[in-house]
Write a protein that binds this DNA or RNA. Sequence first.
DNA 1: CTCCTTGTTCGACGTTCGTAGTACGTCGAA
DNA 2: TTCGACGTACTACGAACGTCGAACAAGGAG
Lengths: 110, 110
Amino acid sequence: MTVKTAQHPDTADLTLTSVLAALADPIRMHLVQTLADGREKAWSELSAPVAKSTLSHHLKVLRSAGVTRTRQEGTRCFVRLRSDDLDERFPGVLPSVLAAATHVAGPRQG
Amino acid sequence: MTVKTAQHPDTADLTLTSVLAALADPIRMHLVQTLADGREKAWSELSAPVAKSTLSHHLKVLRSAGVTRTRQEGTRCFVRLRSDDLDERFPGVLPSVLAAATHVAGPRQG
DNA sequence: CTCCTTGTTCGACGTTCGTAGTACGTCGAA
DNA sequence: TTCGACGTACTACGAACGTCGAACAAGGAG
């Protein structure tokens, strides 16, 4: 928080390399999958097997890469995917990655 | 070379994280773009502003991630994208990434 | 055979990353 | 005001990464 928590890059400043690097981590990929439905998630909803500070770090990486957007509401913040911005700049990348991640870790029932 | 140069993972063993990590580097992305036409390229054709050993390293990362396939012919080797395998395992990912990388670094005229 | 070319491997270096703990600032409640 | 909850910033450390030069191994040319 500390006021300047929200440091979101402009859509035009997003780089493919940074986005891919942000997605190239199991923890962060899991976070992105959690956000894949497009709905905003509270910080506490983003479960990850890491310490609080580490989760904050990963969220910052996603935020800095332009993958997510964080909104503050009082002391707590809500995170959501920047699907529209991402798809405007890198059409199809996020959907295909999300689909690939899902049909790899998702349907484990059959 | 040294005989066991070719260490290609099976298509089923490819992981999205490894593929994304392999693509999340400017040098490697450039190499992949060079191979994007699907045609096999000779080692010496893969120009990169790095030392020979570094280029070899990056090629190994791409190979280990299953992004490329290396074929030896005498003392020299030829590299090509595993587009089919990649698209079978992670449909649409490589094409969209390639398209995004191209319309970012490619058409700089307008 | 000897030389030269090609690409990999190894050792080393500095940087970045992932992780956690601690301290800090902000907000809401009492 | 004091207290507690929330999320970030800072600090530190080991591991992994990107880079290079040198040594090495495998083939081809003479």
